[in-house]
């Protein structure tokens, strides 16, 4: 799974549970940086129209507004964005990135300002050379600004809500006629196996036919190897249906 290849940061809470952050890769961060750069230029080009109009009546003032305004906007854009949008700018939002506190706490205004102020050194000598190397070397992918501010950039891919319709629990399940088999399956099958079977059902339409047949055959053989299954529970039942029946009895209890 892609999630397993992603670098994770796990935080344990005093309540005795843990939650994870997926650290953003330097490539994704570079993408967000480019988007933000383009967003700043695009927004400022629109402001530029107003400034040009101002220049018709007061050229000196218009020049000053252009110089100071662009400096404030280009530096302040990320600070205001990350502060008001909980660690996100337009680029980060598009790429599902977010700046968070490295201890999982509330991101503070101080942290946001500091990590952005230190872009001056991260940018050295050219195009985020120092920051890029620091992010590659750092265990948590932090550039110098992140190290000083105690922040990390995480990746939050959109997670779909759990879909229980994949189980189709209202259909006849031949395994339920054999409660001892159901009990043994529940005892023998671990959470990882149950999850793998469910995921296979949830994603069946994404698989090519040959691969799907092979996958469900493997899964069916595995579950059949866990406990003896009566013939009438498997006779005439395709491997995929058998796996569906197994997942149904593993996850759902029916009165």
């Amino acid at each position: 799974m892609s999630a397993d290849r992603t670098q994770m940061l796990r935080i344990a809470t005093p309540e005795g549970v843990a939650f994870s952050f997926r650290l953003a890769s330097p490539l994704l961060r570079l993408g967000a940086l480019i988007v933000d750069f383009a967003a700043v230029l695009a927004a400022w080009s629109m402001v530029g129209v107003v400034i040009r109009l101002l220049g018709l009546v007061a050229e000196d003032l218009a020049q000053a507004v252009n110089i100071i305004g662009f400096f404030v906007f280009s530096q302040g854009y990320r600070i205001i964005g990350e502060w008001r949008w909980r660690g996100q700018t337009v680029g980060k939002r598009l790429l599902h990135l977010r700046v968070v506190d490295e201890q999982g706490l509330q991101l503070t205004f101080t942290q946001v300002v500091l990590r952005n102020l230190l872009r001056f050194v991260d940018f050295l000598p050219l195009a985020y050379g120092v920051g890029g190397i620091a992010a590659l070397v750092s265990r948590r992918g932090q550039r110098l600004g992140d190290l000083a501010a105690g922040t990390i950039v995480i990746w939050e891919p959109v997670a779909p809500q759990p879909d229980f319709t994949t189980l189709r629990g209202d259909k006849y399940n031949s395994l339920r006629a054999h409660p001892p088999v159901v009990a043994r399956l529940r005892q023998a099958a671990g959470p990882a196996e149950a999850r793998a079977a469910w995921q296979a059902l949830a994603r069946r339409d994404e698989l090519e036919e040959a691969a799907r047949v092979a996958l469900f055959a493997t899964l069916a053989d595995h579950f059949k190897s866990l406990t003896p299954i009566p013939t009438d529970a498997t006779e005439g039942v395709a491997d995929e249906q058998f796996v569906r029946n197994v997942v149904d009895v593993l996850f759902l209890t029916r009165g």
């Binding site: 999630a3 935080i11 809470t13 005093p14 549970v17 939650f19 994870s20 952050f21 968070v100 506190d101 999982g104 706490l105 509330q106 991101l107 503070t108 939050e156 997670a159 779909p160 809500q161 759990p162 879909d163 959470p191 990882a192 149950a194 999850r195 469910w198 995921q199 593993l250 996850f251």
Partner: peptide, 25 residues
């Protein structure tokens, strides 16, 4: 128990945000 990844990610996200609010500065 049954660690269905989507539900767990959803809850982890919720608990993570709640943790930041409750234990934050």
């Amino acid at each position: 128990f049954a660690a269905e990844p989507e539900a767990r990610h959803y809850l982890e996200n919720l608990v993570g945000r709640g943790y930041a609010e409750i234990h934050g500065a």
